[in-house]
Design a protein around this nucleic acid. Structure first.
Lengths: 223, 223
DNA sequence: TTCATGGTTCGGTGTTAACCGAAGCATTCA
DNA sequence: TGAATGCTTCGGTTAACACCGAACCATGAA
């Protein structure tokens, strides 16, 4: 009968505000130090340390020691995915923030979901790739031959992407748009290329801000 | 950056073992009464009532009053999806079931899901009924005429089943098999008949143990 | 070595909330 | 109408745990 606690133990970890803040701070895939996470959570370092050991022993976080710093990162994209799903649920149930202020607006337009593009722009990108036949239109999308050509021309090293350990394509549910956007190794590569092309001027935090030239370039290629 | 607590409040709700048990009991989409959920969670009705109001005011559950019963169901498929995602995560992180001992094995073979048969045997039963054309092959299966004849001969009072307030047939998702088994009034009637026929020797708890004669009879009729 | 910094472990305090007994409505059945 | 059932509200108890102050390791710099 005890098959509830199974999810309960994990959920309880996410249920503490301090820990939730830490995890959301890590959602973009960066690795942060313990003190950074403490300030993100708004607690003293000792308290943060306790939380971090808990998250680590539950294998939600990985740690990497570098000098006298300890860098924490999410143990995988699935953790970020669960967090996104919870955000979506929290939003639907209305227990939440009322989408005001320019920051929230910007967040809705384009943001970083783990390491790929999410929000309005993310959905547009995903739809465009499917519509043009660059990826298949299934639950679990695949890259097509024409897609390989197009993306190589776009500046992506397809061989490297397909050689990565993660799945190439992934349909990731967008919590603000309620539709899918592109995740996986390819999603990460696309975001990376956009950034190196100068389309995106601000990559700090989760908000992604497009330059005006990047904006029109994105429009031209994907809309 | 205060979008952490947002998810924290929802996650905290899922973080309590009693509530988690209730929600997993509802994952198949059925609606259960408050007392049923109390027993599923292993708590007294008063305690369950408190949990249910919390889940309801967070819009994770919907309630429907019918006579002096109150039926609770998940407020949408997205809730079930989040629960599934959490289960996946819990499984990956290894914070979970070790599936050792004969009890877990027996649980996987045949168990009681609310009041009907679940597990390996439950899936076999469901498939057999569909394959033989006794129920239709849709999302929401229906009893056919040949099905009525067969089940009457099997010893079930079909008129009573079809006169019950609950739906007759229900495709109920099996958490160990990841496929559907038979729920609803008919599912309950089938289990009841099997028990009264002596096919099942131990009906205590959730584990259902088949007698050797019952085992071969089940095999003959449904495999 | 000595000092400073990043992290941790160790007590003690305070708040939260799950739990149950008992009593209270509401609905159905006899 | 009275009895039984399903569910809820109320009060008090208990256990868990987040939080911080203080002291304690480790690493790197002076």
């Amino acid at each position: 009968m005890k098959d509830g606690p199974l999810i309960a133990s994990v959920a309880a970890l996410l249920g503490d505000p301090a820990r939730a803040n830490m995890l959301t701070a890590l959602m973009d895939g960066r690795a942060l130090t313990a003190t950074e996470l403490a300030s993100a959570a708004g607690v003293m370092p000792q308290t943060a340390s306790g939380h971090l050991t808990k998250l680590r022993s539950a294998r939600l976080l990985e740690v990497e020691q570098q000098g006298r710093h300890r860098y924490f990162r999410l143990s995988g994209p699935d953790v970020a995915q669960v967090l996104e799903a919870l955000m979506g649920l929290a939003q639907r149930t209305g227990a939440v923030r009322v989408r005001t202020g320019p920051r929230d607006e910007a967040l809705r337009v384009a943001r970083r979901c783990y390491d790929h593009l999410a929000g309005e722009k993310g959905v547009i990108l995903f739809d465009s790739l499917r519509r043009q036949g660059f990826i298949t239109d299934s639950e679990k999308p695949c890259l097509t031959d024409t897609g390989r050509m197009f993306l190589t021309q776009f500046g992506i090293d397809i061989a490297a992407v397909e050689h990565a350990r993660r799945p190439v394509c992934r349909a990731c549910l967008d919590w603000s748009e309620r539709r899918h956007h592109l995740g996986g190794a390819l999603g990460a590569a696309v975001l990376q290329t956009m950034t190196s092309r100068g389309w995106i001027v601000s990559g700090l935090g989760r908000v992604l801000l497009f330059s005006s030239s990047g904006q029109s370039a994105f429009q031209a290629v994907f809309a």
